[in-house]
Design a protein around this nucleic acid. Sequence first.
DNA 1: CGTATTTGACCTGCGC
DNA 2: GCGCAGGTCAAATACG
Length: 325
Amino acid sequence: MDIDLSLKMDAENEEEEDGDEERHGREGEGNHQESEVDRENTHDINEAAGGATTTTTIGGGGGGGGGGDDSSLELSLQESSKTEELSGLHMKISRMKEENKVLRKIVDQTMKDFHDLQIRFAALQQNLDQKKDPQISLGLHANDKKAVQEVAKAIPRQFDSNYIQRHQAVASTKGETVGEGADELGLSLRLQTSSSQQEREEDMEENNMEDPTALFAPAISQNNNNNSNSNKVQRTDLGGSGISAHGASLANRKARVSVRARCQGATMNDGCQWRKYGQKIAKGNPCPRAYYRCTVAPGCPVRKQARHSIRDHHRLIFIIPELSR
DNA sequence: CGTATTTGACCTGCGC
DNA sequence: GCGCAGGTCAAATACG
């Protein structure tokens, strides 16, 4: 639910200039939908009221003519204005009911997704517990191809399709035309293992990438020039879902799951509250890299990085480096 | 005054 | 082992 609303916010925030959008996102979160509706309500009611005022004025003009039927005429005019107002309110109510329906659907879908994900996660964890690998991150071992594939199947699909679906659903309630929601938002998610070398490669990739939505491309050929080095981390396309998993070929390399999101705005409102805990100037990028930790719940282990794209300094790339534990 | 942000120091992993 | 770069910590500072 939060995701839906915040996503909608993001779509709107994209048009805003850089600024304190993070704060804006936090404050507006959750209230946005209501305020939107409220504004509409006010508008409609004002419209009705305006109509009433006009009629009254006309009535007043008639009164100027002076006559014994003035009071009855005024009364009938008032009645008609009240009827208009009522019908306006009725329309408003029915519109809100429809909106409610849509929102309820979204909540149901979200709950269903969450339940689904929980089941998958439990199964995956159980599966991996049997193997008792201490280096598992989010129950994922880099060498366990099956596990990598399962996680890739479970997590990204939930994130990917539902995120977009919800965005579409919410947007459609506003009468927007949503084609490729992900493309519009410039979001992309991927599963990866990490190493400093790989991240350097990714940075290079960011620099070389023409199209910001290119991360949706199933296969990334950045390792083509690494043929000589078989030790390097290789990316694997997973089901052409637009999610790429980085299967580590090095056994001892720490495996981790990353979710990347890219957005046009200065920040991405993803339904979480983030607190900045560090900033670093990365080599080769004049813009500092910011580190955030999730503050939704005390002790929440989720963190994310916000990097500026070198190509477009106004574009931020978000990376959640570790979802484990 | 409580909370968020900034920033320099420190830790860790990797390549040479 | 050393140096470098990325990531994190925590004291200082800013802000509402």
